[in-house]
Design a binder for these strands. Structure first.
Length: 339
DNA sequence: TATATTTGACCCTT
DNA sequence: AAGGGTCAAATATA
């Protein structure tokens, strides 16, 4: 099985690799004389990255992959319900899961407003037996275009309503435009927003509150992990939230893929998780979304940086990250991709 | 008009 | 069978 799929993928990988190489050669010839050209190059490379990410995903799930949909198939043609859905359940069950508890001040509005640096879309709410507060279900906004299966459940604690429990499931495969660093509004502006939010009745999570985020996660956050391989956690013994690392950024092995293959030349700078997801969204259009090429050069830089940032995230599970698999999938020194 | 949320129905697991 | 989780049509919002 594995071999067959390898054989199916290798030519594709090779083609992608070749294409990436050619793009980089083209980039050299551009010689910075054309900003637009450079922008396009980055877009193209970004698309290649995502293609690789998708391939990776489809080849990483050992258990259910025989009949389960790959990311690509999800995007192109959802699998039939009968078999597909069950596989989805299986997959999700196998996803790593961990819980965070965030204490919010009394008047703080709802769970959905808690921003962890990723953009979420609410897809359900349920009254839970024995719980006074309903549980909200959120999934990654980028599921459609990037196949990111990360979800989270948000529920107010019964005993202490000021505590909100957030259960994350799955790792982000998506690239989030998570770097407001360079676009952060002036502090007073942020404070204004926060004050406004405290008055807000129905908050919108679409407007991340970097300031609030920071204080929440740095001062009130407790994390308990469930079903999370302790081996993975071990390296994050420093499980603190240095400045603004997204919570998901706790696994150490994940960077292997991005650092080695795509981001070798991009120093992992530290980026704010505060998310303005619209930036990236427009970029993702380049492979599936509605046409929108208004992405600016700086946006693309952000995106690439975000990918770097994401390299700190538990992006993939993955046997794929097993060096042995890695070699077979990326025969070349992939660190050259973005150089 | 596009995108996000709500909510009842459906599916899956236990 | 019950309860939790997800889907998707309807509705709301910007």
């Amino acid at each position: 099985m594995e071999d067959i799929r390898d054989h199916e993928q290798k030519p594709l990988i090779n083609e992608l690799t070749l294409g990436m190489e050619l793009v980089k050669q083209l980039r050299v010839h551009l010689d910075h004389s054309s900003p637009n050209g450079e922008m396009l190059i980055k877009k193209i490379l970004s698309s290649y990255e995502n293609a690789f990410l998708m391939l990776n995903w489809s080849g990483s799930d050992g258990e259910s992959q025989t009949s389960g949909p790959t990311i690509g198939s999800v995007i192109a043609s959802p699998a039939p319900l009968e078999s597909g859905r069950r596989d989805v359940y299986k997959k999700r069950k196998a996803l790593p899961r961990w819980t965070e508890q965030v204490r919010v001040s009394a008047g703080t509005p709802l769970e959905g407003s808690l921003d962890d640096g990723y953009s979420w879309r609410k897809y359900g709410q349920k009254d839970i037996l024995g719980a006074t507060h309903p549980r909200g279900y959120y999934r990654c906004t980028h599921r459609t275009f990037q196949g990111c299966m990360a979800t989270k459940q948000v529920q107010r604690n019964d005993d202490d309503p000021s505590i909100i429990e957030i259960t994350y499931r799955g790792k982000h495969v998506c690239v989030q435009a998570s770097q407001r660093t360079r676009t952060l509004r002036p502090l007073n502006n942020i404070i204004d927003q926060e004050q406004n939010q405290n008055v807000q009745e129905e908050p919108k999570q679409r407007q991340p509150q970097p300031h609030e985020l920071l204080s929440n996660f740095q001062t009130h956050l407790k994390v308990k992990t469930e079903n999370l391989d302790t081996r993975e956690l071990a390296p994050s013994a420093s499980f603190s939230f240095p400045s603004t690392t997204p919570i998901e950024c706790t696994e150490s092995k994940d960077p292997i893929f991005l650092n080695n293959s795509f981001m070798g030349s991009y120093s992992p700078q530290f980026l704010s998780p505060a998310t303005s997801e619209t930036n990236y969204y427009s970029t993702m259009n380049s492979f599936g979304g509605p046409p929108n090429f208004q992405t600016s050069d700086s946006d693309l830089n952000e995106i690439l940086s975000a990918t770097t940032s994401a390299s700190n995230s538990p992006i993939m599970d993955l046997d794929f990250l097993d060096p042995s698999n890695f070699d077979s999938i990326f025969p070349l020194d992939a660190s050259i991709f973005l150089n």
